[in-house]
Design a protein around this nucleic acid. Structure first.
Lengths: 190, 190
DNA sequence: TGCATTCACCTAAAGCTTTTAGGCAAATGC
DNA sequence: GCATTTGCCTAAAAGCTTTAGGTGAATGCA
């Protein structure tokens, strides 16, 4: 009997892999136990409950995303940085659909505050230094960019942009062009 | 024994109400049966299975949203129409969070094609007649608007925009200003 | 009126998942 | 070499999903 193989971290990683394979919604404590060839009840020494497992997977995904974003932004600015950050989200969602879905998991306020979510906001704000925005407009722009990245990726993954022409890569490029133009020419407050 | 109270439509409506109360993820065939004071198995004459129930709720939500959008767009154009449509999504999500989540439910391709989803795309395209965009750019813009509306509402509902200043209403207004400016001044293809 | 059928819901049952409680044996500490 | 802790196990309760097969009321028809 191999002992000591179980830990919150390993269970979380296994859960994340499972999510990518079968979808975040289908992640189940039972299935994770099965993958470790261990009885379900054994996992409850390492996890509070099913919700806890999902929260941990969500936090893992947010960390991974933030790490990728930080690396992508290093040494870039302006539109180059904008494109790099946008592609981090899109690529991550394609490579890890289950984890990406997990990143959208509704976290409790305290968990959210302690999560890598704040790193994301900080990085997006840093990106905006390449543009000339006043303070309140920076916040608006951070929220707009977050909305577009998240919204676009969700809709594309969910098949929202059917399989009609033009292809989504073309749109993605043009949307980033448009966002860059918008940020360079942000409308003054009326 | 009141007979004939059960039907796919009534079960779907009850499911939608349940979703708004406890969240779309928590919608369960058992709970719906409980609300009709009927045994669970009885619902299976009206619904194929649990997934079927969720799909029906999703389709209902898409219809309701499309109806609201159609009404909001009637007689409006330009920025007025843009704002009206955007507010339809945001308001619907606030009034019916469970239904709104349902509207994001991943539909099978045929179900999606037959859903009100296509009405949404058509209406957004109609909205763009108030702006001067070439054909391919119209499609890009439709997708951008869909992304922003969906992304913003999701993040706001999910608490993504913490409770920091400035408030989200202010951002919402400024984001719509920015989108209007962008559409009036869409960047030419390089 | 009387019989057959259909309809709407029910009982039973099997198979999952979640979660708690208590137990045993291997690893570790002294 | 013994005590404790650690790590996983068995047992069991409870809830959700789904299928199979029934029953009784309503309906259709001779």
């Amino acid at each position: 009997m191999a002992r000591g193989r179980l830990s919150p971290e390993r269970l979380t990683r296994a859960g994340a892999e499972l999510a990518d394979e079968v979808g975040f919604e289908q992640v189940t404590v039972s299935e994770v136990a099965r993958r470790f060839d261990v009885k379900v009840a054994s996992l409850y020494s390492h996890l509070k409950n099913s919700h806890d497992l999902k929260t941990r997977i969500a936090l893992l995904a947010l960390e991974e995303l933030a790490d990728r974003a930080a690396e992508a932004l290093a040494g870039r600015s302006g539109k180059d940085a904008l494109t790099a950050l946008a592609n981090v989200y899109r690529d991550y969602a394609r490579e890890h659909p289950g984890r990406y879905a997990a990143a959208q998991f509704r976290l409790a306020p305290e968990a959210a505050a302690a999560s890598a979510g704040v790193r994301h906001a900080r990085m997006t704000r840093a990106l905006l230094r390449g543009y000339d925005l006043t303070e309140p407009d920076q916040t608006h722009a951070v929220r707009l960019l977050g909305s577009v990245f998240h919204g676009y990726v969700s809709l594309e993954m969910g098949g929202g942009f059917s399989h009609s022409a033009p292809d989504t890569q073309e749109t993605w490029t043009r949307v980033l062009d448009a966002l860059d133009a918008l940020l360079r020419n942000w409308p003054r407050t009326p």
